[in-house]
């Protein structure tokens, strides 16, 4: 029977920029996923994919108004008549589409600096000669420790066993993208009355 060994090693820590950057990258990815999902929802509901292009689903609308027809025969007054006009609206201009996005992010953690070292940034050619000398920079490795509430002996204990990383994300509605607003604007401006006596136009 193989002897089980308990490997216990001291975790040296991660570069500080990794500790700070990773949650921000995760949030950016989450935002990206949300945007993709919303775009797909919009395309599925309001557009038809046809011959390699998305065509908006158009909705036939009717506008009705009354008008006074002048008297045609002497002795009779003007006659109130109704007139109906058809027009088409893209479905996307009717649904209240809101862009959901991450509005506020609150990241809270304590970092214990475990080690520091200087990084030499001198560029050296193949022969070993210095090409350029640049100032060295200080790099730090750190570990996330328990939250700011810990103190004294408890805190020391927490360094070994616990780490705490609190991220509060608030999502909210964002302004629609310029492209989507432009699509809606183009179709809104293209609303034109259609003569219903011409039956050759396509209707839904």
């Amino acid at each position: 029977m193989a002897k089980k060994e308990n490997y216990k090693y001291e975790f040296a820590g991660l570069p500080i920029y990794d500790i700070i950057g990773k949650p921000l990258i995760a949030i950016a990815r989450a935002q990206n996923m949300m945007s993709k999902e919303q775009l797909r929802t919009m395309l599925d509901a309001c557009f038809k994919y046809h011959n390699g292009a998305y065509e908006p689903i158009m909705l036939k609308m009717v506008v009705t108004r009354s008008f006074l027809e002048p008297a045609t025969k002497p002795g009779k007054g003007p006659e109130l008549k109704m007139i109906s006009t058809d027009f088409f609206l893209p479905m996307i201009t009717i649904f209240p589409i809101n862009a959901l996005g991450i509005e506020n992010v609150d990241i809270d953690f304590n970092v214990e600096i475990t080690s520091q070292y200087m990084v030499d940034k001198d560029e050296i050619d193949e022969g070993g000669d210095k090409i350029s000398a640049q100032p060295s920079s200080l790099e730090c490795l750190g570990k996330i420790t328990k939250g700011p509430g810990a103190s004294g002996e408890d805190q020391e204990q927490s360094y070994e066993n616990n780490s705490s990383f609190r991220i509060a994300v608030e999502a909210g509605t964002m302004p629609l993208t310029k492209g989507l607003l432009e699509i809606i604007n183009i179709y809104t401006n293209a609303i034109q009355p259609i003569d219903t006596s011409q039956k050759n136009h396509q209707t839904l």
């Binding site: 797909r40 929802t41 599925d44 509901a45 309001c46 689903i57 909705l59 036939k60 609308m61 009717v62 506008v63 009705t64 108004r65 058809d86 479905m91 009717i94 649904f95 209707t203 839904l204």
Partner: peptide, 23 residues
């Protein structure tokens, strides 16, 4: 002037609305 969806297009609108809500 009063505007509304043409009666023949209401079913299409309802179907799309249902799909949109499901998504």
């Amino acid at each position: 002037a009063s505007i509304g969806i043409a009666s023949e297009a209401i079913s299409v609108a309802k179907e799309t609305m249902k799909k949109y809500d499901e998504l």
